[in-house]
Every structure is written in C-alpha cells, then in structure tokens.
C-alpha cells in the first residue's frame, strides 16, 4: 500500500511516496509551484521513481501554498504540520525546525514526543526567504548553486544593512560599484538573511536539535551563516527539501490505514 504526499510550494513542487512501513519508496521534484504544471510533473517523477502507477496510491495528502489546487488529494494539511512531521521522521530528536521556503520562513517548536507545539512565521516580506537569494543571485550573476562556494572564498564579510529585497539590491549594486569582491558581498548577504531568520528563531526559542528544511536548506553558505547566528549546529538532511512532502505522505498513511 502506497501513500502520496504533495507539497506545492510557491516556486517548486515536491512529492514523496511512502509505504505502510513509512519507508520512502519514491520522490519527485519539479520547478513550478501553485498554478503551474509543476505538481503533475513532480507526481509523475515520484511514481516513476517508486515504480508505481497512480492506481497504487491508497491515499494522498496535499500541502503547501498550492494545496487547495491538488484535485487528486484526499485531504490537505498545512505545510507547517507537514514540515514538522517530515523533520521528525528524518531526525527523531529534533526540537526546532527552521524552514526557509521560496516566499516565507517559519520556525517550528517540536515537543520531546515529536509533535508540533507552536510556530512563528515571518511577516509578508521577501527578506529572509528563498526569493531574496534568487534576487541576489540575479544581481550578482552567481548561480544559486555556486553562491556558497563563492561566499566561502570571502576575505571578509561585508555588512549588508538592509534585508528588504528592493533596498538590498540598491545596496549591493553600490558595493559592487565601489569595487567590493563578489564573495565578500555574498558572505554579507548570507549573514543578513541569517540575522533576519535568526531573530525569528530567537523569538520562538531555539532548542537543540535544530533541523533546517525547505529549498534554502540546500545552500551550505546559508546553513553556516545561520549556525554562526544561532550558535548551534544545524542538521540538514539530503531530503530537506522534501520534508513537507514526506510529512504529507506520513499523514496520508495515517488517514489511509
């Protein structure tokens, strides 16, 4: 018996298929979030990865901002509950989850029993989100995947005072016009986002172990900056971006059995 979790985010769609033992049998990820062909592509990839057909799925739970658009879903769950469940599955001892997605950042407190206890989200603002990194990638002409390496070669970290995407772009352009090294600017950008997300996490309270989920978790530079900001190690699983979809699949299995 297979269970499907679909996480339709603002920029990327992710799917995970689990079985009745909660083992991951397949996964799929496709660019394009709510209102695009991304969800269908991600489902097709996950099914192919699991060697399964749509008819093999016993129950489906959709999550993410586009959850209500997933017509095939049997039910929906909030992405916060799903990320919490996914993170607990990946790191059973987790007490704090930092999820930085395409358009928002969330900090989740997990009970010792592995249940979501409370949460905090950033205000409506691109600061401290994946969108901010995308914009900076564009301004600095450094692909997102290479940002961490470039920042790792920084001689020193420039201070970027603004975390507003609009103002930060102006500030970064000014720094570049002054002749600043790209790596130094990037290190400053990571530190600025880390300060923003770190403040959110401190408001909630940071209890180890800390796990990062969401697409931005893949960025090593971001993780390092956040570790420095919070003064604690942060775990990032290779499946960090799938945590929401994994949690949704686990909820599907609970509802389907």
């Amino acid at each position: 018996m297979l269970f499907l979790g679909i996480d339709i985010g603002s920029a990327v769609s992710k799917c995970v298929i689990t079985d009745e033992t909660e083992a991951i049998r397949g996964k799929g990820l496709s660019p394009g979030g709510a209102g695009t062909g991304g969800p269908q592509a991600a489902v097709a990839m996950a099914l192919a990865d699991a060697g399964a057909a749509a008819g093999d799925i016993a129950a489906t739970v959709a999550t993410g901002y586009g959850r209500n658009l997933a017509a095939a879903a049997d039910s929906t769950m909030s992405e916060l509950s799903c990320h919490a469940a996914g993170a607990v599955k990946l790191y059973p001892g987790v007490r704090t989850v930092i999820d930085i997605g395409g358009q928002d950042a969330k900090v989740l407190s997990i009970t010792p029993a592995g249940k979501l206890d409370s949460f905090i989200m950033n205000d409506k603002c691109a600061a401290g989100t994946g969108r901010f990194l995308e914009e900076m990638s564009r301004v600095l002409a450094v692909p997102i995947d290479e940002m961490a390496d470039v920042a790792g070669r920084a001689a020193h970290e420039l201070q970027i005072s603004s975390t507003c995407v609009v103002f930060a772009e102006t500030e970064v352009i000014s720094r570049m016009a002054e002749g600043a090294a790209v790596g130094d600017v990037l290190a400053g950008i990571f530190a600025a986002i880390a300060a923003r997300v770190g403040a959110l996490a401190k408001r909630k309270g940071v209890v180890p172990e800390v796990v990062m989920t969401g697409g931005v978790a893949k960025n090593e530079g971001m993780r390092r900056a956040l570790e420095r900001e919070l003064g604690t190690p942060i775990h990032v699983d290779p499946l960090a971006q799938y945590a929401g979809a994994l949690g949704a699949a686990l909820f599907a299995s609970q509802s389907g059995l």
């Binding site: 929906t76 909030s78 916060l80 509950s81 206890d117 949460f119 989200m121 409506k124």
Partner: peptide, 16 residues
C-alpha cells in the same frame, strides 16, 4: 488582499 499566509497559520493552529 492575499490571505494565503493567514490561512496557513490558522490551519496549522487548528491542527495543533
């Protein structure tokens, strides 16, 4: 005009 974030927050709160 966009209540997506509010919806997520309320849905999660109810789940808790």
């Amino acid at each position: 005009t966009d209540f997506g974030q509010a919806e997520t927050q309320l849905m999660t709160f109810k789940e808790i």
